[in-house]
Design a protein around this nucleic acid. Structure first.
Length: 270
DNA sequence: AGACAAGCCTGTCCGC
DNA sequence: TGCGGACAGGCTTGTC
C-alpha cells in the first residue's frame, strides 16, 4: 500500500522520464476506478508537454498548460515507465503515451486509486482542503496542537486524518506513535505539547528515512517490476502484534482503532 | 471457503 | 436548528 514515501519515490522516479515530454496519447482500458476516469477531459493534454511532476499528499500531479492530471495510487496502485509496447496485463488500466516512445502505465488491481482532472487555474476539491505536508515547516507542534485541541478522537486516528496532516497512513501512524512513546488510543486533546513535539519529530524522521530507503530500492522506474522495497525495512510495531517490543521485549498489543489494526507496546507507550 | 487487509470518501447520528 | 465531530459502511481483490 503506497504511503507518502512510496508516492514521493514514484514521483521522483518517473519525473526524469516524462518531464518536458509531449503526451502523444492516453489509453483508458478500465475507467472504473474509485471515481470514473474522465477520459474526455484527459485527452485535452494530447500534444502538450508535462511541465511539472508534483505531489500533494498521496496525489501525484502531472501538470500541463491545458490542465493537470491527478493520480492517486489507492492501496494497490503503481505507476511505471515502460519503454516498449508490451502487452498490458489485466490490471493495467491506463497508459499515458509520450512522443519519445515511452509510456506511463497505471496499474491497480483493487481499483481503490483514482485518476482525476483539474482544469488550469483550479484546485481540485479532492486536494483543496488537505492538511499540511508532514515534511514542511508548516507542520509543527503548534499546528498539531491546534488540531488536537478539544478533540476526543484517538491520536492515531487524528494523525491519519488527511485534513490534519497528509500522507500518514496506518503503517507510519503506528510507527510514529511507537517512536514518540504515545499510546495510540489516547484522546488527541489530552496530550501535552512536549509529547506532541516528539510526535511531530517522529512523523518527520520516519517519513524521511522511508523516502531515502525508497529512493535506493526503487530508483529504476523503467521496465522494473515496480515492486516497492520499503516493506522490508525494519518496522518496530506494524505487523508485529504479539511479538516482543524492540525496546522492552514485552509482547506488543494489537487492537482496532477506526477499523484499523493498531499495534503498540502497552508499557513503552503511554 | 471466507475473513481480512488497505486509503479515504460518504452518509448518518450525536450532542452542543 | 445548525454544525462539527465521531464513526460505520463501502468500494475491490489478492492472500492467507
Amino acid at each position: 500500500m503506497p504511503e507518502l514515501p512510496e508516492v514521493e519515490t514514484t514521483r521522483s522516479g518517473i519525473e526524469p522520464h516524462i518531464l518536458n515530454q509531449a503526451i502523444s496519447g492516453i489509453v483508458v482500458r478500465q475507467p472504473k476506478l474509485r471515481w470514473w476516469v474522465p477520459e474526455t477531459e484527459l485527452l485535452a493534454l494530447v500534444g502538450q508537454r508535462v511541465k511539472h511532476v508534483a505531489r500533494r499528499g498521496k496525489y501525484l500531479l502531472l501538470e500541463a498548460d491545458a490542465g493537470t492530471i491527478l493520480i492517486h495510487l489507492g492501496m494497490s496502485g503503481s505507476l511505471r515507465v515502460i519503454s516498449d509496447q508490451r502487452e498490458p496485463l489485466k490490471h493495467d488500466h491506463v497508459d499515458i503515451l509520450f512522443g519519445h516512445g515511452k509510456l506511463l502505465r497505471y496499474t491497480d488491481p483493487r481499483r481503490f486509486g483514482a485518476i482525476l482532472w483539474q482544469p488550469p487555474g483550479q484546485i481540485h476539491e479532492r486536494i483543496s482542503r488537505l492538511g499540511p505536508e508532514p515534511l514542511s515547516d508548516e507542520f509543527d507542534v503548534d499546528c498539531l496542537r491546534q488540531q488536537c485541541k478539544g478533540r476526543s478522537v484517538t491520536i492515531k486516528q487524528l494523525i491519519m486524518n488527511s485534513h490534519v496532516v497528509v500522507g500518514v497512513g496506518n503503517i507510519y501512524a503506528n510507527e510514529a506513535l511507537f517512536h514518540a512513546g504515545i499510546d495510540p488510543r489516547r484522546p488527541a486533546g489530552r496530550i501535552s505539547a512536549k509529547r506532541l513535539t516528539l510526535l511531530v519529530e517522529a512523523i518527520k524522521s520516519i517519513l524521511m528515512a522511508a523516502i531515502q530507503q525508497g529512493g535506493t530500492t526503487l530508483k529504476d522506474f523503467v521496465d522494473s517490476n515496480g515492486q516497492p522495497g520499503y516493506f522490508q525495512q525494519s518496522l518496530s510495531v506494524y505487523g508485529r502484534g504479539g511479538k516482543p517490543c524492540r525496546n522492552c521485549s514485552r509482547p506488543l498489543k494489537e487492537v482496532r482503532l477506526g477499523q484499523r489494526s493498531t499495534v503498540f507496546c502497552n508499557y513503552c507507550q503511554r
